[in-house]
Nucleic acid binder design. Sequence first.
DNA 1: ATCTTAAATAGTAATAATTCCTAATTAGGA
DNA 2: TCCTAATTAGGAATTATTACTATTTAAGAT
Lengths: 138, 138
Amino acid sequence: MPINYFIEQLQAKGVKITPQRQEIIKVFLESQDLHLSAEEVHGRITVKFPSMSLDTVYRNLSMLQKLGILTELNFGDRKSLFEINNSQHHHHLICTKCGGSQEIEFCPLDFLDKQHIKNFKVQKHSFEIFGICANCMQ
Amino acid sequence: MPINYFIEQLQAKGVKITPQRQEIIKVFLESQDLHLSAEEVHGRITVKFPSMSLDTVYRNLSMLQKLGILTELNFGDRKSLFEINNSQHHHHLICTKCGGSQEIEFCPLDFLDKQHIKNFKVQKHSFEIFGICANCMQ
DNA sequence: ATCTTAAATAGTAATAATTCCTAATTAGGA
DNA sequence: TCCTAATTAGGAATTATTACTATTTAAGAT
């Protein structure tokens, strides 16, 4: 997805298109690392734009998540990671030894009997599997 | 499950049976709240044993989780909740409005094709559904 | 093109949860 | 009863995140 695809979503929601916001989205689009913490996003931007505030990063990551542009992930350490939604919905295998992760294209919601969520309006869900990856098993 | 069931597990693993450890387990067995934070566990114990250190609570919650006596839950705010494993394995629906939760007896691993976890040694998993509960919808 | 204003930002302080550190204590085996 | 490694209390330190406030700015209106 080109950056304009996301910019248009922001415009449609009536939020201002600031240079800071565009930089944040660019970081995700340019990154090979799929999962970035607020600190990492901030670090990558301040190389070129030293005045970017960490507060601005947090505020925008949160906003982009609410708009559905980013997904927030919690891998158990108590810091949030974010990934941009420009590929198919998926979940993760997370290695508890090296911290690495790989995607799996399996979603529990596809198998969940609607009976279980009667009278409950689903907004989002999390599913991750923790263990030892092939590399760390030698 | 009586407390001795858990004490025996500790002995089998060769860890010392301290009064502090027993108090922590008691708190979970006596609690109607299924999910307790470290702070809550500490608060309940210091009523009777004011000298209990918060560090000791954290250390033991972590140890009890590693031994499989407690399950650690992350409901998105960045603090861990713990529940004792004395009932059937389950997951949770979490209300994003009131913070309440209910159990569902559905586990994704029962539906996961083993193909997805080839060359990966599964240790644990998390699955929760977030949304609005019946009460909060009026 | 300029003006206006609500939204957004920078910089810093504050908070919350958790972990670290060290001297003192203790459970449990010898 | 003694010994020692494991555990604890108490407080300091760390980490991630949020709050605060004065200043700046995007974008619609004039």
